[in-house]
Amino acid sequence: MSDRLFGLVVLIGSVAYFLAAANIPTGFLVDPVGPKLFPRLVSGIAALCALLIIIQPDNDPEWPMAMTWLRLAIALSVLVAYAYTLKPLGFLIPTAVAASVISYQIQSRVVPAILTGIGLSAGLFLLFKFALGLSLFPVPRSWMG
């Protein structure tokens, strides 16, 4: 079932990709192949593979339970938040928080998770800043006056 669903998604995707190729501007310099053919070939083969997967799917993988989905969703949102806060809030705080949360999602113990977060944040900062010489700000720039 999972494979059929996946095949269907890919099939729709490749048809959309094939149609989107029609919108590619051709420009003045035209070679015999042009910018549309190769993407169309690729999407054609992808659609064929998707059909074969739908016709002959593999067994379903073992999908995680509802709780694990929740954990994955939390980890995902923490990572996205981390991506957006890394610059404005400086390195130390977002890294400590994100690393703690991810550590907690892997093994559910609070204290080791927080210690991991703080340790990684400080350790990696020293490594990046002084060993590798990256220009990182430890805390929000406004704090540093």
Binding site: A98, A99, I102, S103, I106, Q107, A113, T116, G119, L120
Partner: peptide
């Protein structure tokens, strides 16, 4: 649980 957050 230490390694993976670090890699990330």
């Amino acid at each position: 649980w230490i390694l993976l957050p670090g890699v990330c």
